[in-house]
């Protein structure tokens, strides 16, 4: 395939990333810094997973265990970043009280977590998809068994979902972390495991992995709305919450 297909896949995979960056993150300098922080922590987790993969030889071909270990690192660093952020937040609040005029306003937690998740999701897609996609700019494509849709298109849709999922996981995870809610935190880890294992279906089947990841993303989105609705962390607002006007007024 040529560059036409290459750019088509880039647009498809990064559609949510472009929109959120343009309409949310780019509006606030602190959000940009947070998103870079999110990317950096995700890359650190990838680096740790790679070291782990390297020092334990039996792990090198045991793909399910690689996925499990890598997710443990990713989630550990996600919550590590949250704890740093919570500490910094206290400082930010103190600073805001002391000094009224700051360069840019301090973002609220929901937008901050969208930015952190955005950073992780974009780093994830850049590393795991764009590096592979580069080969797609040549004449060849790759098709999984009995499939007439190129695996690069399947993976573009999955990258789309993973960028959205990382933002949602960040929102749910932060809420769970701050409110010490083990259910919310484990939902993040379990759906992450689930989504990652679904990508293993790509080689065997045509589109099954892809459609299940899309369904999972819709499910996690719905759960996020549910989490936000009753959230004290995201007290500023709740996403389309038509019946929580009371909370907003508080």
């Amino acid at each position: 395939m040529t560059f036409v297909g290459f750019f088509g896949c880039i647009l498809l995979a990064f559609a949510p990333a472009f929109s959120v960056f343009l309409l949310v993150i780019s509006r606030n300098a602190q959000l940009i810094i947070l998103s870079i922080g999110g990317s950096f922590f995700w890359l650190l987790s990838a680096l740790l997973a790679a070291i782990w993969w390297y020092i334990i030889p039996p792990l090198r071909t045991a793909y399910p265990w690689i996925i499990i270990c890598s997710i443990i690192f990713q989630e550990a660093l996600r919550f590590g970043f949250f704890s740093l952020y919570v500490r910094a937040e206290k400082g930010f609040i103190a600073e805001r009280e002391r000094q009224t005029a700051s360069l840019t306003s301090h973002p609220d937690p929901l937008r901050a977590n969208i930015a952190i998740g955005w950073g992780a999701g974009v780093a994830h897609s850049l590393v795991s998809y764009v590096t592979l996609l580069w080969e797609y700019s040549g004449p060849a494509s790759y098709f999984s068994h009995n499939c007439s849709v190129s695996i690069f298109i399947v993976m573009a849709v999955q990258s789309f979902c993973f960028i959205v999922l990382h933002m949602l996981w960040s929102i749910i995870g932060y809420e769970g972390f701050v409110s010490r809610n083990p259910i919310k935190m484990s939902v993040v880890v379990l759906t992450h495991l689930c989504a990652s294992f679904l990508t293993m279906l790509n080689m065997a089947s045509c589109g099954a992995g892809m459609s299940m990841v899309v369904i999972l993303t819709l499910g996690v989105s719905a759960y996020t709305f549910y989490v936000c609705r009753g959230s004290r962390v995201y007290h500023v607002s709740c996403l389309p919450c038509f019946n929580c006007t009371e909370e907003r007024q508080k």
């Binding site: 036409v4 297909g5 088509g8 472009f18 494509s141 098709f143």
Partner: peptide
């Protein structure tokens, strides 16, 4: 190698543009 049809590239490109606009 195995190759995709040239028309499917254009389909992917237009789909990519539509999805980007939809996400916006």
């Amino acid at each position: 190698y195995q190759a995709d049809s040239p028309s499917s590239e254009l389909v992917v490109l237009s789909f990519g543009v539509v999805i980007t606009l939809a996400s916006m």
